[in-house]
Design a protein around this nucleic acid. Structure first.
Length: 804
RNA sequence: GCCGAAGUGGCGGAAUGGCAGACGCACACGACUCAAAAUCGUGCGGGAAACCAUGAGGGUUCGAGUCCCUCCUUCGGCACCA
């Protein structure tokens, strides 16, 4: 049988019929929105790992349609990004060309899989008709005060300009191996932190898998504590944030981020300023990630000649710079309590600073700090803390905070781990940020009627050495007029990050051709929220957060109908190469779906990808598995040879059929595709054993298999002239009463050891079952006169007799 | 370092706290064949057995792959979260 030929035939028919095109409103039908993260069309094309989620979610979509839903199952491309730009530079082509080429490959691959995608809604983030609206939405952020320019640091390579984190390897440029430093730069940011609380709070309105909710919550990282002002003896003051105010009497030093403004302000008073400068320069060479690694040692330098005053007892303590303190979190300064914080402890050991224990309960010589998570559980009390000594920790926390607040040196503060979203990139291949700078009027938004601000086509779009975007070199594009005063002005040359376009694409799918607005409210109302959103694990924190934030903002200004855009979110496991390593071109373990489809057919590939293992876990690719699924499909195909008449299920297959319907239905709903396929294989085995199958049974089998193997099932269905056509077939339902067998086998145990197995009538009562067990001859023999202490009856499973 | 996920036969993996290994691969034997492939049938964790087996060690329970604690290993994410 030539699978490929059959599949091509049906794919052409579907396309010609526009079988999967969907209307926004379909009277008498409920809408369902099934979404897969749109792929980034890299030059590598899709590998069999991508096909796993596509075939799985396609099965969900196809089943939903047969259950009477109006299903939106769209596809598009996340086309802006670094890789296309790099490839373009390497191949001396335009990124536009590279992307067009990659999209063509990717579409060819996807179409061969036979997905029920509505291709008429296809979008691409680099299409001006699309990014016009990304820009328009940025302007709304700006107009509502959520976008502004702020000083941030960027990775800077003297030869290659600004680098992405990804391009920095151990502090060196991945291209030219030059040393990378951190450079200060004004960049556009979106004030996502304003939404931090709601982004945590509203997770309760979603059905994300628990670990995904946890990831979101941890990323946002809300913590409540005190902001405390410390005076500097030599003049001035600074703020710190702490969640452990109860340890304030244990402070033996303070640590500032190397970038802290005090260093500059107090430079005349710092006795070892040269040494300090040297340390700051060193810190500039490290990325935040490197600085974050505890095992890199506790580097730091003492600011000699200046000291801080602990407001609680006026004690004078030294101030250090330490690169483990980040300027971007809290106030860029911490109070250090080495007896009760491990990191402070290690820093103190390194720099020979004293320890003052202020909480009871732990041997001081244990070589580590007695930290919050431990002492909070120990009902510990304070020591060495003046009037607070003897208080239980929770009480001390309250009273110390109160005292400091009354003194006017502290206030309650909520901090978030999450930061505002740095939205500028000094890159060519992204959406131009639609802002104009006028000497007189400052930053001005491009008038909405002038959107999109299109990317100019240029010859050179390599990053510039002055750290500006390559767009800055295109003078006739940069120079423009001020929308406000009409005078000379310059365009913003930074572009948006790849995350921008992907933060709202699911909305555009609802109304992809709209040229009046990014999507009409009616269209959005009919589809949102997305019922099932699937994507990679690597996107369950950042992309998901950005998209939720973006939507929440649009919701607030009345442009999105829902406050949470995704009802549920799942993430598929990776498909690794057959050697158990992530598929990559350089390792030569990439499997192209086109090769598999040409050899075994798309249906075999799809069934195998569903069957290969738990959807959420990673799994190794195997060719043998495709072969096995091909065998299974062929077996179902060959049932045409043993087909007999019959419009209702036969007695012989009735239980098998109802069992399969129940299992496949529930398993698809619960994202357990592997056991759904297994249930279908069991049904096929039962049919083979019986040696015949009637029309009603075959139709049900084909319907259940259709979401996974849509081509071959439609081929068989059409060959046999089954009525109605499969596209109008209705998903079968099962009858619970038909699942009940007359008898069930029970294991009879004594003290958890199996003594015998017996069949017991399904409708037997617990006491009847107990009696059968007690009177069983093998049990009686094994008991050998021992006393029965307890009998445990587990319905449909076992009886366990506890005897002494 | 932090956050998240996961470790079950030769392999991929099943298993609402209840008979571990469903379903499939590989393998072996048999049928069909001159032969092979395909197909069909049988067997298939270890052990002669008692028993032993779900990364290691503890715990809860009549009963633990599943729940709790301590470790080890692998994978994904990261912006040290004070």
């Amino acid at each position: 049988m030539n699978f490929r030929e059959i599949e091509k035939k049906w794919q052409d028919i579907w396309e010609k019929e526009k079988r999967f095109e969907v209307k926004n409103f379909e009277p008498n039908k409920k809408n369902a929105y099934i979404l897969i993260e749109f792929p980034y069309p890299s030059g590598k094309g899709l590998h069999t790992g991508h096909v796993r989620s596509y075939s799985a979610l396609d099965a969900v979509a196809r089943k939903k349609r047969m259950q009477g839903y109006n299903v939106l199952f769209p596809m598009g491309c996340d086309a802006f990004g670094l890789e296309a730009e790099r490839t373009a530079i390497k191949e001396h082509k335009l990124p536009q060309e590279i992307v067009a080429r990659n999209i063509a490959i990717f579409k060819e691959q996807l179409k061969m899989v036979g997905l029920s995608v509505d291709w008429s809604r296809e979008i691409s983030t680099c299409d001006p008709d699309y990014y016009k609206w990304t820009q328009w939405q940025f302007l709304q952020f700006y107009k509502h005060g959520l976008a502004e320019k702020q000083e941030t640091t960027v990775n800077y390579c003297p030869n290659c300009g600004v680098l992405a984190n990804e391009e920095v390897e151990n502090g060196f440029c991945c291209q030219c191996k030059a040393e990378v430093t951190q450079k200060s730069k004004a960049q556009w940011i979106l004030k996502m932190t304003k939404y931090a609380d709601r982004l945590v709070e509203d997770l309760k309105d979603t059905n994300y898998m628990d670990h995904i909710k946890t990831s979101q919550i941890n990323w946002i990282g809300k913590s409540e504590g005190e902001k405390v002002t410390f005076k500097i003896k030599q003049g001035g003051s600074f703020d710190i944030f702490t969640t452990c105010i109860e340890t304030i009497y244990g402070i033996t030093f303070m640590v500032l981020a190397p970038e802290h403004h005090l260093v500059e302000e107090l430079k005349d008073k710092i006795e070892n300023y040269d040494e300090v400068l040297e340390y700051i320069n060193q810190a500039k060479r490290k990325s935040e990630f490197e600085r974050s690694e505890l095992n890199k040692g506790k580097s730091g330098v003492c600011l000699k000649g200046i000291t801080a005053i602990n407001p609680v007892n006026n004690k004078e303590v030294p101030i250090y710079l330490g690169d483990f303190v980040l300027a971007s979190y809290g106030s860029g300064a911490v109070m250090a309590v080495p007896s009760h914080d491990q990191r402070d402890y290690e820093f103190a050991c390194e720099h020979n600073i004293e320890l003052i224990p202020v909480i009871t309960g732990k041997n001081e010589k244990s070589g580590c700090a007695y930290e919050k998570q431990d002492y909070l559980n120990d009902n510990a009390t304070l020591i060495n803390s003046e009037e607070f000594s003897g208080l239980e920790v929770h009480e001390a926390k309250k009273q110390i905070a109160l005292k400091l607040e009354n003194m006017g040196v502290a206030e309650k503060q909520v901090n978030f781990k999450m930061r505002d979203w740095i939205f500028s990139r000094q890159r060519y291949w992204g959406e131009p940020i639609p802002m104009v700078y006028c000497e007189k009027c400052g930053w001005q938004p491009v008038p909405e009627c002038d959107l999109p601000v299109t990317l100019p086509k240029v010859d050179s779009y390599e990053p510039t050495l002055d750290g500006e975007s390559p767009l800055s070199l295109i003078e006739d594009w940069v120079n423009t007029t001020c929308p406000k005063c009409g005078g000379k002005a310059k365009r913003e040359t930074d572009t948006m990050p790849g995350w921008a376009g992907s933060s709202w694409y699911f909305m555009r799918y609802c109304d992809p051709k709209n040229d009046k607005e990014f999507a009409s409210m009616d269209a959005l109302k009919s589809w949102l929220p997305v019922d099932l959103y699937n994507g990679g694990n690597e996107h369950t924190t950042r992309h998901l957060l950005y998209a939720r934030f973006w939507n929440k903002f649009l919701y607030d200004i009345g442009l999105s109908p829902v406050s949470e855009p995704f009802k549920s979110r799942i993430s598929q496991g990776l498909v690794l190469g057959s050697n158990g390593v992530k598929m990559s071109k350089s390792l030569g373990n990439v499997v192209d779906p086109r090769d598999v489809i040409n050899e075994y057919g798309a249906d075999s590939l799809r069934v195998w990808e569903s069957f290969m293992g738990d959807y959420f876990q990673s799994v190794n690719w195997s060719d043998d598995g495709v072969k096995a699924c091909n065998k299974f499909i062929t077996k179902v195909y060959n049932f045409q040879d043993i087909l007999i008449d019959g419009e209702s299920y036969s007695k012989e297959l009735e239980v098998s059929i109802h069992t399969a319907i129940k299992k496949v239905t529930n398993d698809i709903d619960n994202i357990k595709f592997n056991t759904a396929i297994s249930a279908l294989m069991i049904l096929a085995n039962d049919v083979a054993k019986v040696g015949k199958i009637n029309k009603a049974e075959y139709k049900t089998l084909l319907t259940l298999l259709n979401p996974f193997a849509p081509h071959i099932t439609e081929e068989i269905w059409t060959n046999q002239h089954f009525e109605p056509q499969i596209k109008d077939a209705v998903w079968p339902t099962y009858d619970e009463s038909k699942l009940v067998k007359d008898e069930i086998e029970y294991a009879l145990q004594i003290n958890n050891k199996i003594i015998d197995r017996v069949n017991i009538k399904t409708n037997a009562t617990t006491s009847e079952i107990e009696d059968i067990a007690k009177n069983n001859s093998k049990i009686v023999e094994a008991l050998n006169g021992r006393n029965i202490i307890k009998v445990i009856v587990i319905k449909d499973r076992l009886v366990n007799i506890i005897a002494k």
